[in-house]
Write a protein that binds this DNA or RNA. Structure first.
Length: 325
DNA sequence: CAGTGTTTATTTTGGA
DNA sequence: TCCAAAATAAACACTG
């Protein structure tokens, strides 16, 4: 049994499916959408295991993006040069890993009508969602630029925007990295807790993170790869921002298959724990101490329109989807 | 041309 | 042990 903190451990395959890794990456950025290359980067930056055999796993990842309805493609606007589209989570995919296992979902998320006459309405709904995301991204960017007086390249700043968002909102998308990390592993409670504390401070301590999430970094990478990682605030984990209202869609959690306990609040982590994944319940209401240091925080947060107001109809209510298999 | 995206087929594996 | 989800492989179209 490899022990936390050991180099050997960090090279192991992380206990996440491509779907969960991708969802993690998408949820980890304020815009809640990323181009393929950024998803790759997110994963490679954090999991040494994926720095090898890139052809193989990246092909698998692309397969997943196309194959799974929980991922939607969002076209680039003319002012967003680059190859490929942005990828986002389907507004209704909810907590696909409510069972606590990030390896396998209980049910695959499928959009209704994938093979029947409902398809046409789907197109419309998706485009609405896409438009919404684009608008949000645009708003955020201009807000940031206004606040900082600088013009920053979009994607490279994406992760920075995240830190220090006001703790006004409580909901956190299931895929928010903080949630994922917290649920992760059956680490001794105390350990996970200390990790979260450092996380909420906006600057997780390396050794703590490494201990709690060993496969995320190898002991030397932090220093050696400081450059790439420094692009992201605090290891690329926009701790506070994730989901909050701000960014993305009205992230209304929709359990794939409603269960008595799953709606106990998001906050609420699954009650029946998977035998192999004990989920620290404290996580849900982890203290939202925040770094009041980011200017864009106030700006973006004070944005008048709430997501649901922006759309005439909330995507989460108009989009029809269901877990199917 | 390289990166991106889609699709089909097959194998592996988690979990009931 | 069985089933469905996930992983893997690979062909192929499209695009900047």
């Amino acid at each position: 049994m490899p022990r936390p903190g050991r180099n050997t451990y960090s090279d192991q395959k992380p206990p996440y499916s491509y779907i969960s890794l991708t969802a993690m990456a998408i949820q980890g950025c304020p815009e809640k959408m990323l181009p393929l290359s950024e998803i790759y980067k997110f994963i490679m930056d954090r999991f040494p295991y994926y720095r090898e055999n890139t052809q193989r796993w990246q092909n698998s990842l692309r397969h997943n993006l196309s194959f799974n309805d929980c991922f939607i493609k969002i076209p680039r606007r003319p002012d967003q040069p680059g190859k490929g589209s942005f990828w986002a989570l389907h507004p209704s995919c909810g907590d696909m890993f409510e069972n606590g296992s990030f390896l396998r979902r209980r049910k695959r998320f499928k959009v209704l009508g994938a093979s029947d006459h409902l398809v046409q309405s789907m197109g419309k709904q998706q485009s609405e969602a896409a438009h919404y995301l684009q608008q949000q991204a645009k708003l955020r960017l201009s807000a940031l630029q206004a606040a900082t007086g600088t013009h920053l390249p979009q994607m490279s700043t994406a992760y920075n925007l995240g830190v220090g968002v006001t703790p006004s909102s409580t909901f956190k998308h299931p895929f928010a990295i903080e949630n994922i990390i917290a649920r992760e592993y059956k680490v001794p409670g105390s350990l996970a807790f200390s990790t979260m504390q450092s996380m909420s401070a906006g600057y997780p301590l390396h050794n703590q993170l490494t201990t709690a999430w060993p496969h995320m970094y190898n002991t030397t990478s932090m220093i050696d790869t400081a450059a790439p990682i420094s692009d992201y605030s605090a290891y690329g984990v926009p701790i506070k921002s994730l989901c909050h209202g701000g960014p993305a869609l009205p992230a209304i959690p929709v359990p794939i298959k409603p269960t008595p306990t799953s709606m106990a609040g998001f906050s609420a982590l699954p009650h029946h724990h998977h035998p192999h994944h004990h989920i620290p319940a404290f996580l849900s209401n982890s203290p939202q101490s925040l770094s009041p240091t980011s200017p864009q925080t106030a700006t973006s947060q004070s944005s008048p329109a709430t997501p649901s107001e922006t759309l005439t109809t909330s995507p989460s209510t108009t989009l029809q989807s269901v877990a199917v298999h």
